[in-house]
Design a protein around this nucleic acid. Structure first.
Length: 430
RNA sequence: GCGGCUAUAGUUCAGAGGCAGAACGCCUGACUGUGGCUCAGGAUGUCGUGGGUUCGAUCCCCACUAGCCGCCCCA
């Protein structure tokens, strides 16, 4: 029998990579806190209809990528219920907003989440069947200012700050507006008509898309098709006055705040609930899956799933992709501990544990060796895990003066036990 | 869901129809309490899984599974 493995598209995260995940999450939490966001945790599975009604019945996510099952009924009279592992988290947050009547507070709700999402896609680099998203939503009644373009600009500015603080250099913010639901329906038809004469000269994929989903033609990457795509009507020309003004206000705020972006007339996102502002932050180091994060405004989502009018804007970052990007940038260097304690002889082991306890309680990261190791072996192990080695033999035990060697300089000093923790806290190296 | 490439030691990868290899890493010693360099020695594998061809398959054939790349789509 074959040995059991993590199922396709899922994986184990091990040290030291998990340290990078923790750093990313800690940075995100710290940035969100400065913008006064609070954390929300919603269930990893929900009623299936939540997703079909929000994300959209016809989207790829809902039509073929969800992990869905009929939950068994317990009693004869009880109906079974269709449940689904969440493929994204915005729908769950909005459901919770409605369920807990958060709109009744009259306040803008600013909520962030970090957690696993599930989509049954073919795995490849940067795309997994269980993946983690870090996202946030700003949602509330219109009277709280939830429709204001300033909210859009503030979210985008926050994302630029977060990526900078994570150490991700070289990102690009691509921005567009898909207008209201009516604007988009109008544009879809305009595009369909415009494609009739030119589609036969385009690639096979585009010929198909021209019929099934004209918006996707805009995503085509075939070089020969680009001049044709450039001549197609732009969604900007199908926007009504209000959507046009909203977008202008978003870009004006970004310009004034100094957040760089590029207008991408072709940015059309795949989830049905998006209205007006849509955006992606992309990075070149990711291969075909180049989107670090995506998001947009969803002014009609709450009403679509039976809630009050609650316009909002949000985003989801692919945490797996942040990790890949940071690894590619080599911004991920393993941290060494503060000290490695090398007892000489097993009789010194108890005293070494006592010393380790003392140092760890003082806040130091300490690796504890073993008295049965030869000193050479201790040095080998110490150099891999710590900045300094503390040698503790019978001599040191008797005198209370410990031998400390700094690996980055090679210098060796004698330090009294009382001064040890402060000596180890001092920066090593030259 | 479709197409291409791949699967051999802890890791990265060679390999030939007939005893399973290298480098790095690991262990031991040269060197009773001073590592990194050097030298000598050593351990480690169901050769992804299942079937077929063959006297003999890790190698050839088929299927399956998984990974990578692309398509689709998306984070």
């Amino acid at each position: 029998m074959a040995t059991l493995k993590a199922v396709r598209g899922t994986r184990d995260l091990l040290p030291p990579e998990t340290a990078l995940w923790n750093r990313i999450e800690a940075t995100a939490r710290a940035v969100f806190a400065r913008y006064n966001f609070g954390e929300i945790r919603t269930p990893v599975f929900e009623d299936t209809s939540l997703f079909s009604r929000s994300v959209g019945e016809e989207t790829d996510i809902v039509s073929k990528e969800m992990y869905t099952w009929e939950d068994r009924s317990r009693a004869q009279s009880e109906k079974s219920q269709s449940l689904t592992l969440r493929p994204e988290n915005t729908a769950g947050v909005v459901r919770a907003y409605i369920e807990h009547k958060l709109g009744e507070t009259g306040q803008l709700q600013k909520l962030y989440y970090i957690g696993p999402q599930f989509r049954r896609e073919r795995p490849q680099k940067g795309r997994y069947r269980q993946f983690s998203q870090i996202g946030a939503e700003v949602i509330g009644p219109p009277s709280a200012g939830s429709e204001s373009p300033l909210r859009d600009a503030e979210v985008l500015e926050m994302l630029a700050t977060l990526l900078d603080e994570l150490g991700i250099t070289g990102w690009t913010l691509e921005l567009n507006s898909v207008g209201s639901a009516a604007d988009r329906a109008r544009y879809n038809e305009t595009l369909r008509q415009a494609l009739i004469p030119v589609a036969p000269t385009m690639c096979e994929d585009c010929q198909r898309r021209a019929v099934t989903n004209p918006l996707r033609v805009l995503d085509c990457k075939v070089p020969e098709d680009q001049p044709i795509i450039d001549t197609l009507p732009k969604i900007a020309d199908s926007l009504d006055d209000a959507s046009r003004a909203h977008f202008a206000a978003v870009t004006a705020a970004l310009d004034t705040a100094g957040v760089p972006y590029t207008r991408n007339h072709r940015l059309v996102r795949g989830l049905d609930y998006y209205t007006r502002t849509t955006f992606e932050f992309t990075h070149g180091g990711l291969g075909a899956q180049n989107a670090l994060l995506g998001g947009g405004r969803y002014d009609g989502l709450s009403e679509a799933i039976g809630g009050p009018k609650a316009p909002g804007i949000g985003f989801a970052m692919g945490e797996d992709r942040l990790v890949l990007t940071l690894q590619a940038l080599e911004a991920a260097k393993p941290e060494k501990g503060d000290a490695y304690i090398a007892p000489l002889g097993e009789s010194v082991n108890p005293a070494a544990l006592a010393l380790a306890r003392e140092l760890r309680r003082a806040g130091l990261t300490v690796e504890l060796g073993d008295g049965s190791f030869r000193l050479k072996k201790s040095f080998d192990a110490a150099d891999k895990t710590a900045r300094r080695i503390v040698i503790m033999g019978e001599d040191e035990l008797a005198s209370g003066i410990l031998t400390v060697k700094d690996f980055s300089t090679g210098t060796q000093t004698k330090v009294s036990r009382a001064e040890l923790s402060s000596a180890l806290k001092a920066p090593s190296g030259r």
